[in-house]
Design a protein around this nucleic acid. Structure first.
Lengths: 341, 341
DNA sequence: CTGTTAGCGCTTTCAA
DNA sequence: TTGAAAGCGCTAACAG
């Protein structure tokens, strides 16, 4: 049912019906009422495509995320949706499954759909041709979680967060700390966190700071188990994200290690589920919903002002270290021989 | 950049450019090549709104879900996205946060966007005015997870699943079993599972089968803790979903109860995360991605055939009980007095 | 094989 | 306060 039928039913022109919906105060009260009744009767819904085509604005923001299977991004999307609604935008989310070619495809699809702007989480802002295209074409966009001086970004300082965590763990008495990460290549976030790990380890004078890289899909985290079986196994694991941390805890339990008594495990992300676990997951919590919301607000503001967000608009949001219950001082190991004199 | 500029650049008419993209074999090879080059140079992307407006088909399926914060629906959406892509559709997901008015709003928004069909998870198919509207207007739609003889539905037989679970638990020796559910009103799924609980309890001749209703938002599951502190506390908890089950396990641990030695906990949903926990979550696993995928396929088939899916097309997918590690026979309680002669 | 042309439903001048 | 009409970008007859 189109605007024309409503017009006929209400005995007015289509222009007036259009006004009734978009500028109600420019329509006589009586006319307005008649139109609304007619629209109601006919269950009229203004056709979005026609409106978008005509106005060249869709009131839609595109969203590009790696996956919704990781609660981090689901939580972020929730924040995006909330803020978008508040700002009068609908959203159109697409996932890439961490695949570069799908990032490009997603951006193209969104551009073809005529979105007014995009929020995206990419693997690596540096090499992204999709981003370059956006920048070139003057399309408003904001990166979430990513950090790159050449783009407008919203996220936390993951490097500092991890560095400080390592120093804290050392102060707790941990002498062997390992970082567990997915394939580092896959994301600049992981790289950043690893840099923080190295920095923290160096600063704390930590001798043993290893990296355990866990292939993404591998269900049995063999690499983790191997590391934990070693005689000189780490006393603390710093994980690149919460999902990995949860997996580490399970691996530890499988090996008969107690968390945190025998092994400290700390994640990164602060997914809501972490607080429901026992032991409650220790983590560097990001304000996921806020990261999404803030990205949208940045974007909306720029669009309203008629320009694109620049890298100068980047925002670093505060993170919060939550010790949870999976993080503690290492138990003093029973020494095999007497202490040195 | 529009089709016209491409046409000009390639020295052909807009019609030919259109054909080049939609019916490439009806265009001379040389012309096609020239057009593609021009399109590439100009970074041309066919305008979706214009195409939708003209063809009256969007190649988009609307998706209405309660929330993406519960991994069940995230997993389902993933399946939907996959199947949709395979069938040549894009998807437009909207969440309702379990609020009825938002179900209606979501449906309206999707209809206005001109989606070709919808997959939805509603609170209660019976009273849904949104559904009624869809049915009346002959819009193709499929319900996921919901079950109702008057609508096309894709899901598992939750009632039977829970009934069988209860009988199994009784056979294991459990004498006091409670069901933990969110507000039953909020969803027909929960109601169904509760019916299964009652049926199973009755059939197994179970004397003590209580319902513990947990307010949705409540972070501290006080109701659960109270029930578990009781002298005649249940030996097994059947939870309406996995998130609740996880919360129950934490509550149990907080009370010094071991799972499964002191308390069996079983969830419902089969979220991927459940397998990463320790104890691995016992659950009635639904094939979440398949539920989504199957819904899409049903829908796509009907649309292709030019009609709407009827309730006769409903599909019941198999569920699978996974004992995990949170489900076991109850430990024999130390008896206070000697056994009877 | 290619071009011309009429709209899809809507918004927005410009006139009345 | 309202109406007439142009046109957003595209596709699908129809003609050539």
């Amino acid at each position: 049912v189109s605007i024309e039928q409503v017009a006929r039913q209400a005995g007015v022109s289509v222009a007036t019906v259009s006004r009734a919906f978009n500028l109600p105060d420019k329509v006589a009260a009586g006319t307005l009422a008649r139109i609304m009744v007619a629209a109601e009767q006919l269950a009229y819904l203004p056709n979005t495509s026609a409106r978008t085509l005509r106005t060249q604005r869709s009131e839609v923001l595109g969203v590009v995320l790696p996956t919704l299977l990781n609660p981090v991004f689901a939580e972020c999307l929730d924040g995006i949706a909330q803020a978008a609604t508040a700002a009068g935008y609908a959203i159109l989310p697409l996932t890439t499954d961490y695949r570069l070619e799908r990032e490009q495809a997603a951006v193209d699809k969104l551009l073809a759909a005529g979105v007014d702007g995009l929020v995206l989480v990419v693997s690596n802002p540096g090499g992204s041709t999709a981003l370059h295209k956006l920048a070139t074409q003057q399309v408003p966009y904001v990166l979430a979680y990513n950090r790159d001086p050449r783009h407008p970004c919203v996220g936390v300082d993951g490097e500092r967060a991890v560095a400080e965590l390592v120093e804290y763990l050392v102060s707790l008495g941990h002498g062997r700390i390992a970082m567990v990460a997915g394939e580092l290549q896959a994301s600049d976030r992981a790289q950043q966190r690893y840099r923080g790990f190295q920095r923290g380890a160096a600063r704390a004078g930590l001798a043993q700071a290893a990296l355990i890289e866990v292939p993404f899909v591998e269900p049995e985290a063999a690499a983790i188990a191997t590391a934990l079986r070693s005689r000189s196994r780490p006393t603390a694991l710093v994980c690149s994200n919460d999902l990995l941390a949860i997996r580490c805890i399970r691996a530890a339990h499988g090996l008969g290690l107690r968390v945190p008594q025998d092994l400290t495990v700390v994640g990164f992300d602060g997914i809501a589920l972490g607080r429901e676990l026992s032991p409650m997951l220790g983590t560097i919590a990001q304000p996921n919903a806020s990261i999404g919301a803030c990205s949208v607000e940045l974007l909306a503001r720029a669009i309203a002002a008629g320009d694109v967000p620049g890298s100068a608009a980047s925002v670093t949001l505060p993170h919060e270290f939550r010790p949870g219950e999976s993080c503690a001082a290492p138990a003093p190991r029973p020494s095999k021989r007497k202490e040195k004199p």
